[in-house]
C-alpha cells in the first residue's frame, strides 16, 4: 500500500463527514430561502430536498458546498466553518453534482471522469493505474463502459449527465450534494443512480442530499426529506413523518393523492 492510500485512509478515519448548519439565514435577491436553519447531514442518511420551482433548492445546495456564503450563520464540516477550509480539502470530503452539465471542449469520457481525482493528486502528479481503475469502475457503474473514448461534446443529455455523475463517484466524497440527479435520465437510469446514491449514503455510512422533483423517487430511496416553502420556512424529518398528502399539498400548492402499492406509497397530483 503506497503512501497516498495510507493518507487517504487516515483522512477517512478522521470521520470528517458530518456537515451541519447552525442558525443559518440564507436569501437570494432579497427573497428568504431558509431562516434559523439548524440542520445536520448525518452519516448514513440520504435526504430528499423538495420544494416548488424557485424555492431555493439550488441556492441551499450551493451554500452547503461553500460556493455561496449565507447571510447569517455558518456551514460546519465536523465543527469547522467551511470557509476556513481550503477548496482542495473540501473537495476531498464534499462533492456536488450541478444541475446543468455543459461540456465546451472536446475531451474523452474517460479523461473527463478522471478529473474527479483532481483534489487527490499533487501539483505535478499524474493519474496512476489505481486512479484509472477507479474511473473505469465508475463509468461501468454509470453504464458508460462502451463510451469511454467518445468525446463529451457529442453526448446526449442523459449520457452527459451520467458522465458528470461518474466524475462525482471518482471524486469519492463522503458527502454528496446532488442538484436534480435524475434530470434527463430515462427510468432505468433514474432508479440505477438513485440506488447507487442510497448505497453510498445509507448503506456505506456516507451522506447525501438531493434536490428532487419526483416525490416518488424521494419516497423510495431517501431516508429523510427537507422541504423548502420559498418564504424562509422549512421542515425536516424522516420520510415516514413528512411524506403525506397534506404536507405535499402545502408544499406544492396542489391537491395530492396517495396510492399504496406493493413497493410502497405513490403520490400523484390531481388535475384541476
Amino acid at each position: 500500500m503506497n503512501h497516498r492510500t495510507m493518507n487517504n485512509l487516515a483522512m477517512n478515519n478522521l470521520a470528517m463527514n458530518r456537515l451541519a448548519c447552525k442558525s443559518l439565514d440564507l436569501s437570494i435577491a432579497g427573497v428568504s430561502i431558509v431562516r434559523g436553519f439548524n440542520f445536520t447531514l448525518e452519516p448514513g442518511s440520504f435526504w430528499g430536498l423538495l420544494g416548488a420551482n424557485g424555492s431555493g433548492k439550488t441556492t441551499l445546495l450551493k451554500c452547503l458546498a461553500g460556493l455561496r456564503a449565507p447571510d447569517v450563520g455558518a456551514v460546519l464540516l465536523d465543527g469547522i466553518s467551511i470557509d476556513q477550509l481550503p477548496r482542495r480539502v473540501l473537495a476531498r470530503h464534499i462533492g456536488m453534482l450541478q444541475q446543468h452539465t455543459a461540456y465546451v471542449f472536446d475531451s474523452s469520457v474517460l479523461q473527463t471522469a478522471l478529473t474527479g481525482r483532481h483534489p487527490h493528486l499533487g501539483y505535478w502528479q499524474r493519474e496512476g493505474q489505481e486512479d484509472i481503475a477507479k474511473a473505469i469502475a465508475a463509468l461501468n457503474a454509470a453504464d458508460l463502459s462502451g463510451l469511454t473514448e467518445r468525446s463529451v461534446t457529442g453526448l446526449s443529455g442523459g449520457e452527459a449527465r451520467r458522465v458528470a455523475f461518474a466524475t462525482l463517484l471518482v471524486q469519492e466524497p463522503r458527502i454528496m450534494l446532488l442538484d436534480e440527479p435524475t434530470n434527463h435520465l430515462d427510468l432505468r437510469h433514474q432508479v440505477s443512480i438513485m440506488g447507487m446514491i442510497r448505497a453510498l449514503s445509507v448503506q456505506a455510512q456516507g451522506a447525501a442530499i438531493a434536490a428532487l422533483h419526483d416525490v416518488n423517487l424521494a419516497a423510495r430511496y431517501c431516508s429523510h426529506v427537507l422541504m423548502l416553502y420559498g418564504n424562509g420556512e422549512w421542515t425536516a424529518g424522516s420520510i415516514g413523518e413528512l411524506l403525506n398528502e397534506s404536507s405535499l399539498e402545502r408544499l406544492y400548492g396542489c391537491a395530492v393523492r396517495k396510492l399504496e402499492s406493493p413497493d410502497g406509497p405513490c403520490f400523484y397530483p390531481l388535475t384541476h
Binding site: L67, R87, R88, A91, Q98, F105, Q111, T115, H118, L121
Partner: peptide
C-alpha cells in the same frame, strides 16, 4: 505544464473547477 491538470478542470467551468478543489 505544471498547471495542465488544473486547466483541464477549469475547461469544464469555473464552478466545476472549484468543486473539484481548485482555488
Amino acid at each position: 505544464l505544471g498547471l495542465a491538470r488544473s486547466l483541464n478542470v477549469l475547461a469544464m467551468g469555473e464552478t466545476t473547477a472549484r468543486l473539484l478543489g481548485e482555488p
